[in-house]
Design a binder for these strands. Structure first.
Lengths: 303, 303
DNA sequence: TCCACTCATAACCGCGCCTTATGAGCTCAT
DNA sequence: ATGAGCTCATAAGGCGCGGTTATGAGTGGA
């Protein structure tokens, strides 16, 4: 990932990107400025600065408003993805900041907190704008402790078993995916990989003791032989993208890489690497109130 | 999507997020500062500002370096997604700016330019850092014109037919997906939806004449009855998320919504809504040089 | 013809962030 | 033990970006 020049000198800041989205939506610099609470000249200047930075005219100004140019429409679409990521960031950060007196206190495993919670929080904010959520993240045991100690109202964990002393419901299934760089031989295979072949192949994996590792060993009926053992999802992906070998990770962690084809999924023949994602709570009736709202969002439809 | 307070007051700017990633990777404020070309106090201050903004300590400082706190690790993961979106933005913008004297001139349909090109450009930059790419985006006819006029070396189009006068190869298949908000009855269906039922249901669609619309009408054997006709992918998604009804869009456009479950895919019984994505070029031998490099990235493995 | 709307220009100003210089704390090697 | 070498924090000063208000120019409709 070696960059020559810093990214933030080539990408407009979030305020400018959001302004561009507002201009696209409202069709006027002035109205966009008003919506964002800045003056019209400020908006005008910002867009101008952005156009100079990108070297391309983005909006066509006319006495009756402003429309995006063709390039502007494209840039706006790309900008939207940055802003959406920023919104997910904000939703997560807000929950992290919110103190223990929140209306809804959630504890979640790292994987779920990382990949699913921001989306859920955004959806929850849309459905129930007045629900303040706080988020604690840790491993399954940590989640169970917080729940039992009364520090959290709902928890989310991944793994084969329901933690002892808690009630819960399966909300989704998480599939582990074997993925390789497009240049890897397995990317071109016509036949799916069979369990024994997978077990015999050195893989790039999370460290021993991780949930991923556990599921994989169970499914293969023995210990997978690691080519590399890395401590973070990010490091595993980077190694696989670099062509070091096949990696095994949750599909949650791989969505991005698979859809842009930085990595390619390897079809498997006689193994199914799934684990359950569960919502958990203190024993008793199903949670009510805000917790119930959140669960309604997360529960997978019967399929 | 009404926000009460502006987003950029609650989310650190890109420079700060990238700094956080550098700190996570390098384990030291000072080294991160050096990598980004700023002074150590500037980095220290930036992180501090970010912690104050988020209301959560992010890094644990020690005389031997800085490590992320648990919350910091989570924030960093969320930050990584923002930065990745910004990198895609940059890759696209750079190609838009690059003048006609680039080494590789690409023309692409809007959908492909929007969803696939940034990823391809990033991959190409990783593989061949010295290849300057320029990008022109328009509809299929526009792409064909640019190629035939010699203004572009390779093109990418979606649609059933190869544009007349060009050679090409199918690089991927794009599936149209019927999706509904999680609250919609179809989200809970156990039985897949059949063609006739789909045809009889008012749908949220792109406007007449769009590629999406064409494929849908072909597959249903008649004109789909639109509930709403909207001019942009974004508007269609927003309407569907708002629960107005089922929408039909490329899976490329829906990846994000489906994985965060803002929308749910509706399984179909006896219709397959696919269209081919093609690379196209002027008649003759397969492109060589930079164009060939790009095609190698985009071609789907035989599966 | 004049009003209502668009965006652009100009002049001013203040906040924010960066810089350099320095200090304090910890670890380790000599 | 003690000082070198690393860490991060604090302090003081200055520059620049991006904001504001005030105004003007252009266009279209009443």
């Amino acid at each position: 990932m070696g960059e020559r020049a810093p990214l933030w000198h080539r990408v407009p800041d979030l305020a400018a990107l959001e302004l561009l989205l507002a201009v696209a939506r409202l069709g006027s610099l002035g109205r966009a400025a008003a919506e964002l609470g800045i003056s019209q000249p400020a908006a005008s200047g910002r867009i101008r600065t952005m156009e100079k930075l990108l070297g391309v005219p983005l909006v066509e100004r006319s006495p009756r408003g402003s429309r995006l140019t063709r390039a502007g429409a494209l840039v706006t679409d790309w900008a939207r993805r940055v802003v959406e990521a920023a919104e997910a960031f904000d939703a997560g950060a807000q929950a992290l900041r919110a103190d223990r007196d929140s209306r809804l206190r959630v504890a979640a495993s790292m994987t779920i907190a990382e990949y699913l919670m921001p989306g859920w929080l955004i959806a929850l904010r849309a459905a129930r704008p007045d629900t303040a959520v706080s988020l604690l993240a840790g491993n399954s045991q940590f989640v169970a402790e917080r729940l039992l100690a009364g520090d959290a109202d709902v928890g989310f964990v991944e793994g084969p078993a329901l933690p002892p002393g808690l009630d819960g419901a399966v909300i989704a299934r998480d599939r582990l995916v074997v993925a390789v760089a497009p240049a890897h031989p397995w990317a071109r295979r016509s036949a799916p990989v069979r369990a024994e072949e997978l077990a015999a192949t050195p893989l790039i994996l999370r460290e021993e003791g991780s949930g991923t590792r556990q599921v994989l060993d169970d499914a293969l009926g023995r210990h997978a032989a690691p080519l590399l053992e890395l401590a973070s999802t990010t490091a595993v992906k980077a190694a696989a993208v670099g062509g070091m070998g096949p990696c095994v990770l949750s599909e949650l962690a791989l969505t991005e890489e698979l859809s842009t084809r930085r990595l390619v999924e390897v079809p498997l023949a006689d193994v199914t690497l799934t684990r359950r994602l569960r919502a958990v709570w203190r024993p008793g009736p199903h949670p009510a109130g805000p917790a119930r709202d959140l669960l309604a969002l997360t529960r997978t439809p019967t399929r």
